[in-house]
């Protein structure tokens, strides 16, 4: 027991030290200036206005790599009369800084809220770029728990994948406002509705709705183009999608894929994928087949429907099998 405690203390102090170094290395103004310059130079704008006052950025369909600097998930922001709300911040300090520069090119209003759709690094690792704005960081009430538990590993893996330079300044910034029930935020004449979900893509998915335009920000509850990734419950995810797709909306922003999609049509390919995987695994379990059988055979008809299928699909099957064998 004493050994364990010492070990834990050491690991935590190392984490803290690492955090301090990250803060020192962040050199925020320089990073932000560089990002602003890059955003200004880019031939295509960093964000598109998909509805009045609603802007979104389409991340690349890719895994973390030095060339993309962690810009592999969608992000966006909503501009009210008095303030701005950011929805997800990209996968590194640099991407977050680029998003912030894009906001500043649109409005000088204060950034009052930075909302994370869920805990995954490609959606939250740009949070640090907004610390100077002193916003409320907003997330599902289980986000802090889930992200803290994974923090050390997320940082290690993604730093390695991006390289020191592209990762510079990136650190974990946890929610300061935990959402445990339906909640609204006010941007001045513009209401943002937040709805925490039961375990689906993860155990901390939050649905964000801009009431004025009806735009839904769904985070990774919806994947398009990019192979889905399961880090929650395959049955829970289908239940959440069944519920969300009962209500039409003018548009929805998926966590990966186009910057704006028709709703509920955007969810159909994902719903199909989850159903195919569930149905095929249930047949194998009924026949007393194994986890290895499942990862080798299930869902292969979906191979051509998704990018990054090789990278993520078999792992989804593994996770789904471990869940469904307890039915």
């Amino acid at each position: 027991m004493p050994l364990r405690r010492d070990l834990a203390t050491d690991r935590r102090s190392l984490l803290r030290t690492a955090g301090a170094f990250a803060a020192l290395a962040s050199a925020f103004p320089a990073t932000a200036r560089k990002a602003m310059a890059e955003a200004a130079d880019a031939s295509s704008p960093f964000v598109a206005e998909i509805a009045p006052g609603v802007y979104t950025h389409k991340g690349q369909i890719a895994e973390y790599a030095p060339g993309n600097e962690g810009d592999i998930a969608n992000a966006g922001f909503i501009v009210g009369r008095d303030a701005v709300a950011v929805v997800d911040t990209g996968g590194s300090m640099r991407v977050g800084a680029r998003l912030r520069a894009a906001i500043r090119s649109v409005t000088p209003l204060p950034i009052r809220y930075v909302i994370n759709t869920h805990m995954h690094p490609d959606h939250v690792f740009g949070n640090a770029a907004f610390e100077p704005d002193q916003p409320a960081f907003v997330g599902h009430h289980k986000l802090a728990r889930g992200l803290s538990a994974r923090a050390e590993r997320y940082i290690a893996i993604n730093k390695e994948a991006l390289g020191e330079e592209a990762f510079a300044g990136t650190k974990i910034v946890l929610p300061t406002l935990a959402i445990s029930e339906a909640t609204t935020l006010d941007l001045g004449g513009r209401t943002i509705a937040l709805e925490p979900q039961k375990t689906a893509h993860t155990d901390n998915d939050l649905v964000i709705r801009d009431v004025e335009s009806g735009t839904l920000f769904l985070g990774d509850l919806v994947f398009a183009e990019h192979c889905p990734t399961l880090d929650g419950s395959i049955l829970g995810w289908q239940a959440v999608l069944d519920h969300l797709t009962q209500t039409a909306a003018p548009r929805a922003v998926p966590g990966h894929g186009p910057a704006s999609m028709a709703w509920p049509d955007a969810a159909r390919p994902l719903q199909h994928y989850l159903k195919v995987v569930t149905d095929e695994i249930r047949v194998l379990i009924k026949d007393n087949r194994t986890l290895s059988d499942a990862t080798a055979t299930v869902g292969l008809s979906e191979r051509n429907a998704w990018q990054l299928f090789q990278e993520y699909h078999a792992r989804n099957v593994s996770a789904a099998f471990a869940e469904l064998e307890w039915e």
Binding site: T199, D203, S233
Partner: peptide, 14 residues
Amino acid sequence: AGGCSAPALKDTDA
């Protein structure tokens, strides 16, 4: 890699 420290529990409460 990472199997021992990973919080494999995808739904901790359940």
